[in-house]
Design a protein around this nucleic acid. Structure first.
Length: 88
DNA sequence: CCCCTGACTAGAA
DNA sequence: TTTCTAGCCAGGG
């Protein structure tokens, strides 16, 4: 477990139900601005994390599990349409 | 160290 | 709107 993974996992685990952030925001909060890609890698490697609360730029669901992600997000009161999170 | 890949992002054509 | 390029960080060969 690297410090990077430690930071990223900590940030993601601190997310509350209904809270959605982007890979870039997670990377920035973790102290690694620009490491959005590495954030995605950590999400895929780590387990037991609310990965569905992390989306792409603009709220777009980029993952292969976007269908599952949409269901999980809607289960938390978040609306997903057109493959992206609807803000409002 | 160098090269390629990946759940990324912003800018330009 | 779609396609391509440049930048960022981490991991494996």
């Amino acid at each position: 477990m690297t410090e990077f993974e430690d930071r990223v996992t900590d940030v993601i685990r601190s997310l509350q139900p209904g809270e959605v952030v982007t890979y870039g925001e997670v990377a920035e909060e973790a102290g690694y601005p620009g490491a959005a890609r590495a954030v995605g890698n950590v999400l895929g490697k780590s387990e037991g994390l609310p990965w569905w609360r992390v989306v792409g730029s603009g709220g777009y669901l980029k993952t292969e599990k976007r269908h599952r992600q949409a269901e999980l997000l809607e289960a938390e009161g978040i609306t997903v349409a057109g493959g992206r999170v609807v803000a409002g």
